[in-house]
């Protein structure tokens, strides 16, 4: 069983605000799921190369050029931000 402290640490890493009850609940549920996942330990993975992607692809790149035709989309993307000032997205101050 993973500890309450561990669950709190993971929640902090994930930037997820959880209540005490939720921490306890996830502690139980995550432990249960991880118990099931333990069976991976039995798989023979010696000398096996990991697959992170089903297709064997090399890096795909494009020219680094601004696409001026998308100005309208950019406007809409900015409008989706909860707090905006002069085309800048506002955040809480980071430096004290």
């Amino acid at each position: 069983m993973i500890s309450k402290k561990e669950v709190e640490h993971v929640a902090q890493l994930a930037r997820l605000g959880l209540s005490d009850n939720e921490i306890k609940e996830y502690q139980k549920e995550l432990s249960q799921i991880l118990d099931y996942i333990e069976k991976l330990g039995k798989a023979d993975i010696s000398d096996v190369i990991p697959t992170s992607h089903a297709l064997e692809m090399k890096n795909v790149s494009r020219k680094d050029e601004p696409d001026l035709s998308s100005a309208e989309t950019v406007k809409k993307l900015l409008e989706a931000a909860p707090d905006l000032e002069d085309n800048y997205i506002k955040v809480k101050s980071i430096l004290k």
Binding site: V10, E22, I45, S52
Partner: peptide, 27 residues
């Protein structure tokens, strides 16, 4: 939230090899 927790756990320092990397090899 459950999946974010599970995924963050599997990718976190100390568990990455045992869970994530092992799963990629099983893949």
């Amino acid at each position: 939230r459950r999946r974010i927790m599970l995924g963050t756990f599997a990718l976190s320092s100390g568990y990455y090899d045992a869970y994530y990397l092992r799963s990629l090899k099983v893949r």
